[in-house]
Amino acid sequence: MRLDKFVCDCTGLTRSQAGKLIRQGEIQLNGLLCKQPAQQIKESDVVLLDDEPLRLTGPRYILLHKPAGYVCSTDDPDHNTVFVLLDEPNIDKLHTVGRLDLDTTGLLLITDDGQWSHKISSPKHECAKTYRAWLADPVEDSAIAQFAEGVMLRGEKTPTKPAQLEIINPTECLLTIHEGRYHQVKRMFAAIGNKVVQLHRERVGPLTLDTSLAEGEYRQLTPEEVSLFN
Rank of each mutant, 00 (worst) to 15 (best):
K119V: 01
D4A: 09
T222K: 11
V196D: 10
R187P: 01
V82Q: 10
P138V: 06
G114E: 14
H178C: 06
M188Y: 04
A136T: 07
A38S: 13
Q36T: 15
D141K: 15
R55V: 10
P89F: 11
M1P: 09
P138Q: 05
E224G: 04
H95K: 10
A143V: 13
K66Q: 11
D50G: 02
T222I: 15
L213W: 05
Q24R: 15
R23M: 12
K66D: 09
P59L: 03
R201W: 00
A136L: 14
H95R: 12
A163L: 01
D50C: 00
A163T: 01
G69Y: 12
T130H: 04
N80R: 01
K124L: 08
A133R: 00
Q17P: 07
E156M: 11
D9G: 08
L221H: 07
T208D: 07
P206W: 07
P206I: 03
E126M: 06
E225D: 09
D113F: 13
S121H: 14
G19Y: 06
S16K: 08
L3R: 00
A163C: 01
N169F: 12
T130F: 04
V151W: 02
I91M: 11
R154H: 13
A136E: 05
E140M: 13
D137S: 10
T160V: 04
V185P: 01
L213Q: 12
L13Y: 13
L48T: 00
D112C: 07
R203H: 11
A133Q: 06
I41P: 12
G98E: 10
E224W: 06
A190L: 04
D78L: 15
D45L: 13
Q220R: 00
A143K: 07
L165I: 04
E179R: 03
P162F: 08
D75Q: 08
P159D: 04
A214P: 05
S73D: 01
D103V: 02
A143W: 15
P223I: 02
G12T: 03
I62E: 10
Q164Y: 13
L209P: 15
K186Q: 03
I167K: 01
L165P: 08
V151F: 04
D103Y: 01
D210I: 00
P223F: 02
W116P: 00
R15F: 07
T14W: 14
L153W: 02
I177T: 07
H125E: 07
L199E: 04
G19F: 08
K20M: 01
